[in-house]
């Protein structure tokens, strides 16, 4: 399968297989200015299978959301057809309005107007906790 090479944009490589659609949704790539290609189940030497997202004409993304969804992905920034930057992302300290708390006893389930805020509780395990009820998100 061949996708035209990108002139100016971003290639998100090494997304865990099956996760690209979720990344697409959370990053609202349906609203992206440029063209978007989703490649799923691409054979990979490292991981068996992986997903890739190619974005042409897009230069900025919410890196925090991407890091949360696919912390081990590689981001290649392309300018004039060349990779000018390779980014490895770091789990963000705080996630605001990305995920919602699943604890049925959490105040966020009833109180209107609250931001859904999670803090990174453990960088090794990648566990986030709701700032209100401290439940772990998994």
């Amino acid at each position: 399968m061949k996708i035209d090479s990108i002139q100016n944009g971003i290639v998100i490589d090494h997304i865990p297989a099956g996760k690209a659609m979720q990344v697409y949704q959370y990053l609202k790539l349906d609203e992206a200015e440029g063209s978007v290609a989703l490649l799923q189940n691409v054979p990979s030497r490292k991981h068996g299978k992986k997903d890739i997202i190619k974005l042409d004409g897009v230069t900025e993304l919410d890196w925090n959301i991407l890091a949360f969804l696919a912390p081990d992905c590689t981001v290649n920034v392309i300018a004039d057809g060349n990779t000018v930057e390779k980014k490895h992302l770091k789990l963000p300290e705080t996630l605001t309005d990305v995920i919602v708390c699943k604890n049925p006893r959490c105040i966020t389930t009833v109180e209107p107007g609250l931001h859904h805020i999670f803090k990174l509780a453990n960088r090794e395990t990648g566990v986030y906790r709701c700032v209100y009820c401290e439940s772990a998100h998994n």
Partner: peptide, 25 residues
């Protein structure tokens, strides 16, 4: 009975809030 309710209260309150117990939290 909702966990985190006193924290939400503290964010909006003009007087000190004491958490006297929020759910199992």
């Amino acid at each position: 009975f909702k966990e985190g309710a006193p924290m939400v209260a503290a964010m909006k309150s003009t007087v000190p809030i004491i958490n006297a117990g929020d759910g199992g939290h």
